[in-house]
């Protein structure tokens, strides 16, 4: 390839600056803005959907992907990233798009089945082979001498689920006494030597740097780690955990403007189809369809799950009580 001159560079730059978003006559393009660990699963799913859509309508649809921290991605959409669909780690982040950007209606979560969460997951524990510290449940994480790796709830969606799962466990174990639950999470975070900024960073600290005795993370993340390094780690399923529901929505303002409403909707509905559910189950996310779930039952052990609505009164409340500046999480470090 010959090296283009500077003038060409500048010309291209100016052209790009002035070029409108472009009209899509025959080929349809969708942009799916998602959170960090879903890249592989959406690569597989997008292929399946493209085939499905071509068979159904004859149109070619290509889906571009954008991945990053869940809140960061939501912020990009609010600030103008033209996402046709969003698939984020927490409903709170899509709520934020609604509140701060008014890009979709307030009742977005009721438009698709299961709270707009086509798959779910939970939080579990990963320990080193042989479980040298004898970790069985959340209560073992506050013992002296146990070092726990979990990301920073201020910057990571997964970390918020981690925190809420531990807090919810402590509430149940102590008959709903908030004071004792707070003491429990305080003791737990006192055992955390490193607060990584994201879920993958925490996994790396635990797996590659060999720091800590137990890693708290997404179940799908732990299953993936175990698949990559089967001889080094064991998964411990706690007695109870939280029902973690990553949610999806189409972004009304964008799809109306780009004329992609029909295909964006179909894309999300296809997540609920047997084919879509199968793909997600293969990538360690728990499917909603019972027969798909039963086929993968070996990989998803039975576990008692509580929801954020019943224990914390929804995301807005949970955020205000625990993660806002000066709330419970900050108190842990100020005491």
């Amino acid at each position: 390839m010959s090296r283009p001159s500077l003038l060409l560079f500048i010309a291209v730059g100016i052209a790009l600056l002035l070029a409108p978003a472009g009209a899509h006559a025959k080929r349809i393009e969708l942009l799916n803005v998602s959170y960090d660990p879903t890249r592989e699963v959406y690569v597989a799913f997008n292929q399946a959907f493209a085939a499905h859509w071509r068979a159904k309508t004859g149109d070619t649809v290509s889906i571009r992907q954008s991945h990053g921290g869940s809140s960061k991605q939501a912020r990009a959409v609010i600030d103008g990233l033209r996402a046709d669909v969003v698939s984020l780690a927490l409903a709170y982040d899509i709520d934020a798009i609604q509140r701060n950007g008014r890009l979709l209606p307030a009742d977005w979560q009721t438009r698709l089945p299961h709270n707009s969460a086509p798959y779910y997951s939970t939080l579990a524990l990963l320990v080193r082979k042989g479980n040298p510290k004898g970790i069985r449940d959340w209560s073992d994480l506050v013992r002296a001498g146990v070092s726990v790796i979990t990301p920073n709830p201020k910057t990571s969606g997964a970390a918020r689920w981690n925190y809420l799962a531990a807090y919810g466990y402590a509430l149940r174990a102590n008959g709903g006494e908030a004071e004792k639950a707070r003491a429990f999470v305080t003791a737990l975070y006192r055992n955390v030597p490193v607060l990584d900024s994201g879920a993958r960073g925490a996994s790396t600290t635990f797996v590659e740097r060999r720091i800590g005795d137990v890693l708290v993370n997404w179940e799908n993340e732990l299953l993936l780690t175990r698949q990559l390094r089967p001889d080094d780690f064991e998964i411990v399923v706690p007695s109870v955990s939280i029902l973690a529901e990553p949610t999806v929505a189409w972004v009304d303002r964008v799809v109306k403007r780009r004329g992609t409403e029909v295909v964006a909707r179909a894309y999300l509905e296809f997540l609920y189809s047997p084919e879509g559910q199968e793909i997600f189950a293969r990538h360690f996310y728990r499917p909603r369809l019972p027969d798909v779930l039963s086929r993968y039952a070996k990989q998803f052990p039975e576990i008692t799950l509580f929801t954020i609505d019943e224990v914390f009164g929804g995301w807005q409340q949970a955020h205000q009580d625990h993660f806002a500046d000066g709330a419970t999480f900050d108190q842990i470090y100020l005491r």
Partner: peptide, 13 residues
């Protein structure tokens, strides 16, 4: 910028 369908951030410029 939105009215003119111009993109600066989340694009090359």
């Amino acid at each position: 910028l939105a009215d003119r369908d111009l993109r600066i951030i989340f694009a090359t410029p």
